[in-house]
């Protein structure tokens, strides 16, 4: 667990910086910022960007198999949006001096992480529903909170992303609703998918606050605005009703409304599974990374070609001008 640095260590510059953050002013790219703030942000934003991009895969897995032309277009547009969101985020991280190439390299080398939820496989069409409804739903809860993050470009990227994501969650829920109202087989498919994605979705918010390595400093710097457990609770509270409405059952025997707290109580996450999947034992860890590496490597000659073409063009233009 990272300790918040005692106030006495703080330089005058850092004091100004913290005052600005305490006053809810945004930090902008050219501002002075503590090196750790910069590094922490690059780590978080690039991890977020990688998650969007790796997150294209489980849904991309069904683009060619979508059951109707309408669903196919929706899914394609949605996965494309994830790519776009990755791009917005890389773009925000680049304002901090990290190049996209460095970030991609860190991902390939295993130095940078992505959300572990994407190490789970998408096995049936219902998973397109569950991912949109639950995974995007959980992501939105987190991202809505991040719209108030202290770093300007990150906050603005989040505003843009949140605006686009609401369609993602709604289309996912719509898939689940359609299946839940369909044949017995379809309903079973939807329930099975909810069973598989429920707990991993709760894990998306990360370890308990008491266990979270980066949380305290991130909260002080307002990179994070709400704690893991607060956000997780918010997600559970809003999702229980949504499951009820379409007649699906959340796979948690301990789930019950707590009148006193005004929140749902829910069971304990299997943290062993959480760590197992993060550390490489998920069904798709190696495939997700290999897929990304392959696309990147197969694209190398294309990237080389456009650079070469551009150089030739510049040379021709220069000769024409001479």
């Amino acid at each position: 667990m990272t300790k918040i640095r005692p106030e006495t260590d703080v330089s005058p510059q850092e004091a100004v910086f913290q005052t600005r953050i305490d006053a809810e002013e945004k930090i902008e790219p050219k501002d002075w910022m503590p090196d750790k703030y910069r590094k922490n942000l690059i780590r978080q934003i690039s991890q977020h960007a990688h998650s969007e991009v790796i997150g294209m895969q489980p849904e991309g897995n069904w683009i060619t198999r979508a059951p109707t032309l309408h669903r196919k277009c929706v899914l394609l547009a949605k996965v494309q949006d994830e790519g776009g969101h990755g791009l917005y985020l890389y773009s925000a991280a680049e304002t901090l001096g990290a190049s996209r190439e460095e970030m991609v390299e860190a991902l390939h080398a295993g130095r940078a992480k992505y959300a572990s939820i994407f190490n789970y496989p998408s096995l049936t069409w219902a998973d397109m529903g569950a991912i949109g409804w639950l995974v995007d739903g959980a992501a939105i809860v987190n991202q809505v909170s991040l719209q108030r993050t202290s770093y300007g470009p990150y906050a603005r990227g989040m505003v843009r992303i949140c605006k686009e994501e609401s369609f993602h969650q709604r289309q996912g829920y719509h898939i689940m609703m359609t299946l839940a109202q369909g044949s017995a087989e379809q309903k079973a498919m939807a329930q099975d998918s909810l069973n598989r994605f429920w707990w991993p979705s709760l894990m998306m918010f990360g370890p308990h606050d008491s266990e979270s390595a980066h949380s305290a400093q991130s909260m002080k710097w307002k990179i994070k605005r709400q704690s893991n457990d607060e956000l997780r609770q918010k997600f559970v509270d809003q999702t229980v009703k949504q499951a009820e409405v379409i007649g699906l059952t959340i796979p948690d025997a301990d789930l019950s409304w707590n009148e006193e707290r005004g929140h749902y109580d829910f069971g304990e996450i299997d943290w062993e599974e959480f760590h197992r999947v993060i550390n490489g034992d998920g069904l798709c860890n190696r495939q997700r990374l290999a897929h990304h590496v392959k696309a990147h490597e197969e694209g190398a000659w294309v990237r080389d070609a456009i650079t070469a073409y551009e150089a030739k063009k510049r040379q021709r233009d220069a000769q024409a001008a001479a």
């Binding site: 680049e94 190049s99 996209r100 190439e101 991609v104 990237r303 080389d304 456009i306 650079t307």
Partner: peptide, 8 residues
């Protein structure tokens, strides 16, 4: 990517 392409 920066090695290959410019930032706009």
């Amino acid at each position: 990517m920066s090695a290959h392409m410019k930032l706009f």
